[in-house]
Design a protein around this nucleic acid. Sequence first.
DNA 1: CTATGGACCTGAATGC
DNA 2: TGCATTCAGGTCCATA
Length: 271
Amino acid sequence: MPELPEVEITRRGFASRIAGARIEGLRLGQPLRWPLGIVADELVGRTVVQVRRRGKYLLLDLDQGVLLVHLGMSGRLRFDTMLPPPGRHDHADLQTTQGTLRLHDPRRFGALVWAAAADAGMAGKLLSTLGVEPLEPGFQPESFYQALGRRSAAIKQVLLAGDCVVGVGNIYACEALFQAGIRPTVRAARLSRPRVARLHAAIRDVLQQAIARGGSTLRDFAGVTGELGYFQLDAAVYGREGLPCKRCGTPIRKTAQGARSSYFCPCCQRF
DNA sequence: CTATGGACCTGAATGC
DNA sequence: TGCATTCAGGTCCATA
């Protein structure tokens, strides 16, 4: 489900409301992708200082340690003082003095991981391989060009790999490549400086537009209070196979790369 | 080191 | 109607 915009929308929906809260308990449902890494009861009494985002991870900074949350493909968070009894797919309830943070995740590709510090243990391992944040000043055309120059894989797959730049998933990779006029199958290292500069700008633009629209609700994404996203209505190519390109009218094509679908306009993205 | 494919898991949509 | 197959917003890991 969630790429950077959806994770950021989720973060904004509860960060200020949970800040300063004291943890009163943690109820766990079925196992998620990784074990929590601590006995749930040991979290009781700790305070949530702030909520940050790194790539598609949310980091709950506690007064002692950090809780890392990933939404996987189907994860969704709620935060409220009154929640219904946990259902079949509600796999974690972090109860605090200011409300309960509930992780709902039917496919269970998501995770809740504790670490003594953001660079320690499993959390440290997960975070250490991440690329540059696309919406922060460290994301620059020249360094992006240099990074892509070392990769011979298809540009779409390099974007999804998340080691050059983070947060770009299947929807926004397709959209950014369309906006930059680049075919998803081009090998990353073959892109010229000007084209990488276009892609750099397109990634930032697409992600910012998506955040402004509340993310994309394809089937079940919603923010922490249930609000839906609307970016999918603006999508130029994603999910539009056979429909006319919004720019030139040519039917959008769909192709497989790895196990993922790529959508592109064969006319606007010639090479 | 890089590139590729399988693995994890459930539910909805599609096809016979 | 029933059952099998395919696909879905992610990303780690083993293999070549």
